[in-house]
Amino acid sequence: MVSGCVDCGRCALACPTEALSVPGFDITPTTSGMISIDCWRVPPRHSPSGAMRVPCLGGLSTAVLAELTAEAEGRPVALLDRGFCARCQAGGSKHPDAHPAETVIDAIQRLLEDCGVAPTTWPRLVALPLPATRMVKGMGEPLLESRVSRRALFTGQALRTSQPASGPRAAPPAQTTGLGRQRLLAALQRLSAAEQPLPARLFPSLTAGSDCADHGICASACPTGALTGYADDTARGLHFDAAACIACDLCTRLCPEQALTLDGSGETATERTPQRLTRHAIRTCPECGAEHSNPEPVCPACRRDRDFARSAFLAFGRQPPASSPQPDAGEAGS
């Protein structure tokens, strides 16, 4: 972290792959009394006894709030609004009209409502104003001048790239993707009445149209691993796990064929267990012998070369031979 960081934890909240984590948000509720969450910038002596303290209320995730509600067993969870967020350097001053935790509270309240949890136990903001002069300073200085300039960043990257890689690459860290999502689902399941399914809004519906050409761009871009590619002996395609999907819409936006449709509103019924979304039979390219799953006979590389050569012959005013009485299967598939 650069020295300009104020540990508010909102980067971790926004990160779809959960690659970032900020310490201070793993909190466990007190055993008795009201459950209240306070900000680090409130002096400890002003916090109610037993209050849990986090770096910033805006960094609390729905998973943490759902777990707290489940642990609280009926006691309300109060997020203390001290009224000085607008003057805090942790981004509050950028959005003075809303409390930083408002979006997350809205989301968790909607989910709890869908789960049939009584409104009295929902997490909520509780106003407990404190003069802004009491706000703790020194949670990090906005040392803008010490940040890496854009030019220096790229120059450093270019130098690193030009060096030959030495030694084996370090192993990637253990997989963390989807942990927060699993925690949210588990906590909501505990809160839900027995036998009642979780709200449909948690399981986005993704459908693939017939235009899908099995590029696999969507699967390679999916930040949570909800959409992955599979391959067996005869076919390959996409594998979708609605429970891991966060409806970020990246797959539908990146699809070059615009073949994917996503509905995150919960209105479309969907399978909640992992499913195979598409299936493309593997075939052998008649030109180069490569195995591919293109809808037409030739593989994508040969198709590109063929289209190039065909366009070149067209440049001489020559149409492709029209002598073939049968329709060209390759053309029909493209």
Binding site: R306, P320, P321, S323, S324, D328, G330
Partner: peptide, 19 residues
Amino acid sequence: VLFYHEGTYPNVKLMWFPR
């Protein structure tokens, strides 16, 4: 040299194009 086929069997032409 790019080789490709125009048409479907039995009306096939082998085409090529140096690049």
